[in-house]
Nucleic acid binder design. Structure first.
Lengths: 153, 153
DNA sequence: GTTGAAACCGGTTGTCT
DNA sequence: AGACAACCGGTTTCAAC
């Protein structure tokens, strides 16, 4: 079932701060705790709320560099994609990987310590994959915006 | 202060599931609740844990389309960047926006309902910005990997 | 860092409207 | 479907080791 406006308000709040108490959420949307509690449970059960995670400060952990990169595969055979996908999922430097339309095959987002760490990743892990033909890397100079919250209201 | 190995194990767990109880975390890393509690408080206070958020299932909310796009500004003046940045931060279709090195200025990640919604966004919001010279859009055909967790161990 | 205890508070459940 | 109240479990703080 599709969430109504009240559900969506709850989703907006939980996307900003998963530690809000039900009481606080209830106050924000002028309800009591019971319906808020029921709605959250339903949204979790239906998988509309996928999970709750902690977001870390990259820089304070020495992961200063983000690189977006475009990858083209050697042969666009089914097995090439399968091999590449399987390898990418295991690489914890890769936060995002999607097959895209256009003049290359994949868009990746990679987080590493610094340029040297990226060089290591590039040479020994990414370009080492058999199916990879070409890679273009775009180093992030300044992160203007980053959010995990999609607009639902 | 830099987090030690125990802190990093806690961070790994909280990045996967922010709702783990302190008792559960303690069990995973063979400690009692008191030190785990103290460490988490410290990591939050130092801003190493930035925040806790709920992650939603895009598809179940009708936001089926991800588009990565490259933007080049008309004039690379300071004011052009400032205007563009300010406008982008307000657009809730834009989840990520970074200034990058290379043959264009910005990399964006955009989430919308469908191709028609992207068309509306593209025509009336993104390309409507005065400072924008050129936009290349890459539609996501298949999302292979998406995580918010950076590797810390 | 560990154990144990106590206070507190939010999540949870049942009942009533 | 929402409000109210009681219960339970986890968090939080403290003491002592």
């Amino acid at each position: 079932m599709q969430p109504d406006l009240t559900d969506r308000k709850i989703l907006e709040l939980l996307q900003q701060n998963a530690q809000m108490t039900i009481k606080e959420i209830a106050a924000h949307i002028n309800l009591s705790v019971t319906p808020v509690h029921e709605r959250i449970r339903k949204l979790e059960k239906e998988g509309i709320i996928d999970k709750y995670v902690g977001l870390l400060n990259r820089r304070k952990l020495g992961k200063a560099l983000i690189v977006y990169c475009n990858v083209t595969l050697d042969k666009q055979r089914k097995e090439s994609f399968e091999d590449f996908n399987e390898a990418i999922v295991k690489m914890n430097e890769v936060l995002e990987c999607s097959i895209v339309s256009g003049n290359f095959d994949y868009m990746l987002k990679i987080v590493v310590e610094d340029a040297e760490a990226y060089n290591q990743f590039y040479q020994h892990k990414l370009s080492a994959l058999k199916s990879v033909l070409h890679i273009s890397s775009y180093f992030v100079i300044s992160e203007i915006k980053y959010t995990t919250a999609i607009s639902v209201v």
